[in-house]
């Protein structure tokens, strides 16, 4: 076989989201997360033959991603140094645990976003749809940046709690 097979490609595709979510807490900006994911993908692709079918693809990919994160941290500017290496380790470990129920979380979040007050939903959509910074959102809306950041924080918390609630009620139902 000259390259990765259909199964590998399927697993690879399916893992993208989980890996992205794994990386995100380590770097905070989606641009950085995107870039690290791309580099991780390159490595995964190059090492496809080392993957043992039947084992956990995401866990395998995560290990690669973790190394990429640390590499990336070293060669980039100070904003990536905000968290100490030891803390990033802690987060990485935790982050690995928390993506096991990603699918339910996704559905739950979709519901929760739908249920936001219209105004809040629009704000979240502005922020993430074109992935612009809070400053740009503030400019679009003619609101003080400060207030936009506060609103975003509040909405994220609402969403987090809503997701929790949904997951726990879903858990109870099954």
């Amino acid at each position: 076989m000259a390259g990765p097979g259909e199964d590998f490609i399927r697993l690879f595709t399916q893992a993208q989201r989980a890996l992205y979510l794994y990386i995100m807490p380590l770097v905070s900006s989606s641009a950085d997360a995107d870039e690290i994911l791309q580099e991780t993908n390159v490595v995964i692709w190059s090492k496809w033959s080392q993957f043992t079918p039947g084992t956990n693809f995401v866990a395998w990919g995560r290990a690669i991603a973790r190394l990429e994160v640390f590499r990336y941290r070293r060669r980039r500017d100070s904003r990536l140094q905000l968290l100490g290496d030891d803390v990033v380790e802690l987060i990485a470990e935790q982050s690995a645990h928390q993506i096991s129920d990603a699918d339910q979380r996704r559905d739950a979040l979709a519901e929760c976003v739908n249920r936001l007050r219209e105004r809040d939903r629009e704000l979240i959509q502005r922020r993430y749809n074109s992935n612009v910074s809070g400053d740009e959102v503030a400019e679009q809306l003619g609101r003080p940046a400060n207030s936009v950041y506060q609103s975003l924080g509040r909405i994220r918390r609402v969403l987090m709690e809503c997701v929790r609630r949904r997951l726990s009620s879903a858990g109870a139902a099954t």
């Binding site: 979709a110 976003v113 739908n114 629009e122 959509q125 502005r126 749809n129 074109s130």
Partner: peptide, 10 residues
């Protein structure tokens, strides 16, 4: 979830 918020509307 980004329904009713396609490119045009955005």
């Amino acid at each position: 979830i980004w329904n009713n918020f396609g490119m045009n509307r955005r």
